[in-house]
Design a protein around this nucleic acid. Structure first.
Lengths: 144, 144
DNA sequence: ATTTTAAATAGAGTTAACTCAAACACAAAT
DNA sequence: ATTTGTGTTTGAGTTAACTCTATTTAAAAT
């Protein structure tokens, strides 16, 4: 019952260093230690790590993640703050996804352009392709 | 004809410091200077900045972006490398977007959970909601 | 019984990407 | 004529998030 730090490292893809670092930064305040002082991670600790990965993945700095964990520890008096935080992150995430879609369009254009360029052996000649010119126009400004 | 560094800073949201830093790092090798030594940015330089933002946005480090710019400067002998790079970035981007979708599902669950918790004034009671429990099960493991 | 392996702590070092400071230049505005 | 604003360079400083080192400890394998 419970995982060693090495097992958690394998499970999560983090290093043992990083796991101890997160703990030092206050992101894992629930991890227990056995009589020998070894960390024993519970399923719930794994759950917290999953949440941390999620929040990190949407761009939250570790400090803000710690803030959330501190709110959680404070109990029901911080429910509204936590809800607001998640709503904010949802907004951020939506913006991020919209930005990535735009990036995808640009990259798709570049792939088409370079595919043509490789075929013709010339970047300049690929730029003369009418279809590609049309496609490029849909991407606002954007040279190079 | 041409923008000052301050104008470009406003246009792009970068600082003048960052613009000079990018140049120092080799990301903007085409920027000209006038007789007084002042940088004059062309439309094409703005285009490069737009591309840099795109590549940065999909997670490429500045060093790799410089690599791409160096390939561009080498001319048609590097067309294949550049095509491969964009294909790679497209793959990365697709993975990233899939990851963000998962994060979005988790955050949506949290918003529902905390909305209920705020309504009831209790996190523990919100956890007892059957609908939320069903929703949570769809998110693989994931506690906290 | 000894060697290996996995863990612990404290604290130093690294990397990427800025960010700022100091000292100087020059053109436009008062 | 001088102040203001915007630019220049070099080089140092900052921040976040690790990442590593040294030393020590305890359990597991031979």
């Amino acid at each position: 019952m419970g995982y060693s730090i090495g097992q958690v490292a394998k499970k999560t893809g983090l290093t043992t260093h990083t796991l101890r670092y997160y703990e030092k930064e206050g992101l894992l305040p629930f991890v227990r230690k056995n009589s020998a002082g070894l960390r024993i991670y519970s399923e719930s600790d794994i759950g917290w790590l999953d949440m941390i990965e999620c929040l990190k993945g949407v761009g939250m700095p570790l400090k803000s993640i710690k803030q959330y964990i501190d709110w959680y520890r404070e109990g029901d008096s911080t429910l509204q703050q936590r809800l607001d935080m998640f709503k904010q992150q949802k907004e951020n995430l939506e913006k991020q996804m919209a930005v990535l879609s735009k990036h995808m369009a640009k990259i798709n254009y570049k792939i088409n352009l370079y595919t043509e360029a490789v075929k013709l052996g010339s970047f300049e000649q690929a730029l003369e392709n009418k279809e590609l010119q049309k496609e490029k126009k849909k991407l606002s400004h954007f040279a190079a």
